[in-house]
Amino acid sequence: MQAFDQIQELWQKHEVEVKVSADEMLQQAKREVNGLRLKSALNILGMLASFLVIASVWIFYHFESWTTHLGISITMIAIGVYTLILYRDHRLISKSDYTLHPSEYLSNLKTYQLNRYRLYNSLYWFYTVALSLGIIFYFVEILSYFSTLQKVVAVSLTALWIIFCSTILRKAVIKREKERIALLIEKFERISGQISTPE
């Protein structure tokens, strides 16, 4: 029995070093970077589509109240600014070739990580407040055409949607993206380490 305990102790002390080549890590990182770029591009396209839909509603429908025009203006400005921020971040992760310059890309990725942190924290609340103000001004005229029950349903659903996006959905997105970017940064740090130190 004592021999078994010694073997088990020896086994636990034994560390197996798994070497993954820089090329293999670079291929894994390439897939993840492409996924990150695609997600970023889809976010931008979604924001642009929202902007165009709201602009077409504003152009093709006749609104009588100045509050509706103000509400749509605020909403479009908020979406436009947020889209520009998303585009700036997208360019940051797309401008350098990670296969040729992993250390430069690592630096850009760390900047991207900080930008995303600001986007999902302080900037997100400005965006939410601006959208809420835009919706409130928009609703001044639109809700006048609704019955009392329809007004309650419209306001309730809008408020619940904003609360859901600002709490549960936002936290889930932040957590998933934070883990994804941190893992990618770790891989690029390893790749840079393997490239700089000869095997």
Rank of each mutant, 00 (worst) to 15 (best):
T158I: 03
L70K: 03
S50N: 13
L42S: 15
D89R: 10
W161H: 10
Q28F: 13
E17N: 11
L114C: 04
A154F: 06
R88W: 11
G46W: 07
N121F: 04
W161C: 10
S103R: 12
Q150Y: 11
I74M: 05
I136V: 15
K151E: 09
I185E: 04
F164P: 00
T75A: 13
R118A: 06
A3I: 14
S156I: 08
R37D: 04
S40P: 06
K110Q: 14
I7D: 11
R31P: 00
I74P: 00
I59P: 05
F126M: 10
I74F: 04
Q113N: 14
E141M: 00
I181G: 01
T167M: 00
W161F: 13
L36Y: 06
K13M: 11
D97I: 01
T197H: 09
Y82S: 14
I74L: 11
T83K: 11
Y112K: 05
K151T: 09
H101P: 01
R88K: 15
H14K: 15
K187M: 08
T148D: 13
K95G: 05
I162S: 03
I174S: 02
A49G: 09
S132Y: 09
T128S: 04
Q27T: 07
L157W: 13
I168D: 05
E24W: 09
L123G: 04
W58K: 12
R37W: 06
E189P: 00
L26I: 06
T158H: 03
L183G: 14
A130N: 01
Q150N: 14
W125D: 01
A55T: 15
M47Q: 07
A55Q: 14
Y124L: 04
H14I: 14
E104V: 12
E104S: 01
Y105T: 02
I77V: 14
T67G: 04
Q28S: 15
K171M: 05
L123E: 02
Y117T: 01
W66G: 08
E199R: 12
Y124D: 00
E24C: 08
E179H: 11
W58V: 12
G35Q: 12
G35Y: 12
S65Y: 05
Y138D: 02
I72W: 00
I163S: 09
E186M: 07
I185V: 15
Y138G: 06
A49I: 08
L10T: 13
Q28R: 12
E9G: 11
I74Q: 00
S192R: 01
L143H: 10
N115T: 05
L92F: 05
S103M: 12
I168V: 13
Y124C: 05
K175G: 13
W66R: 08
S73A: 12
H69L: 06
T67A: 12
E15S: 15
S107F: 04
I93A: 05
H90S: 12
G46I: 06
A159P: 02
Y124N: 02
W11E: 08
L36K: 03
S94P: 01
Y61E: 12
F137M: 06
Y127T: 00
G80T: 13
I135Q: 09
T68L: 03
Y138W: 06
L160T: 14
K110D: 09
D97W: 00
I72M: 01
S50Q: 07
Q8P: 03
S156C: 08
D5N: 15
A172N: 13
T68E: 03
L10I: 05
I44A: 06
E15L: 13
L169H: 03
L48S: 11
F126Y: 08
L84R: 10
L160P: 02
K187E: 02
F164K: 00
L70A: 08
W125A: 02
